[in-house]
């Protein structure tokens, strides 16, 4: 399932969050060679101290993580705004309550191969993006700003995502990093659902999370 975890729920999802920080170290530091702060086996930066929302993909018991990303409103301090000012000037201009930044998007290929072998990594990314689109719409977000590797563009296109590339930088790792604006709309949502052959919502709204919990408690 796909859930939004905000500060008031960090404790409840502490195990899944822990896995997310470990996964980020494996993906962004070890695999992509990004210059990101690593302490022990965790990748965490100062933006993780600002109580961001995390979109997490985990199993139904919320103990095993399959992927995730970090979400922050562009009206507040954001990574792309502060760090990439010089590199992505066009991206950092987008500051508005309905525009959010998504960073550190990643999936755990090993965990997927073990638990959901029918979901190959490309599809896993696409499903996470679809969940993001649903979640953004549920919370009044119309545009996501995000960074990604150039090869992801093909995948986005196949998944029915509309992304406008706003800039590209060569300095951060093995591959260039792109920054783009992702449209969030009914049209994108229905495009993605048909491209990915998904016919029901993926993202658990907070309402249904609560009722599920009450059900468990009862």
């Amino acid at each position: 399932m796909y859930v939004i975890v905000q500060k008031h729920e960090y404790q409840r999802y502490s195990k899944t969050l822990d896995q997310f920080f470990r996964l980020r170290k494996l993906v962004f530091c070890d695999k992509l060679g990004w210059n990101v702060p690593v302490i022990n086996s965790y990748e965490r930066d100062t933006y993780d101290e600002l109580d961001p929302a995390y979109l997490l993909w985990c199993d139904d018991s919320c103990t095993k993580l399959y992927g995730g990303m970090r979400l922050m409103p562009t009206t507040g301090p954001t990574l792309l705004y502060d760090v990439f000012r010089q590199t992505f000037p066009e991206a950092v201009d987008l500051v508005e309550p309905g525009i959010w930044e998504g960073t550190r998007m990643c999936v755990d290929e090993d965990a997927l191969a073990r638990d959901l072998p029918e979901v190959e990594p490309g599809r896993a990314f696409s499903l996470l993006l679809l969940a993001l689109c649903e979640c953004a719409m549920a919370h009044g977000i119309h545009t996501m700003i995000s960074n990604y590797e150039p090869h992801m563009r093909r995948l986005y296109k196949r998944a029915g995502v509309f992304v406008d590339e706003l800039g590209r930088a060569d300095l951060y790792g093995k591959y260039p990093v792109c920054c783009g604006a992702f449209e969030v709309s009914e049209m994108v949502l229905s495009n993605m659902r048909s491209a990915l052959n998904v016919d029901r919502p993926l993202y658990q709204t907070a309402f249904s999370q609560i009722s599920a919990n009450q059900f468990e408690a009862a």
């Binding site: 009206t75 508005e96 525009i99 545009t143």
Partner: peptide, 17 residues
């Protein structure tokens, strides 16, 4: 040379600022 959605985003952003 940008998408309509992005153009709208920049205008909203300018309007917000």
């Amino acid at each position: 040379g940008i998408s309509q959605h992005t153009a709208r985003g920049y205008i909203k952003s300018a309007r917000y600022k």
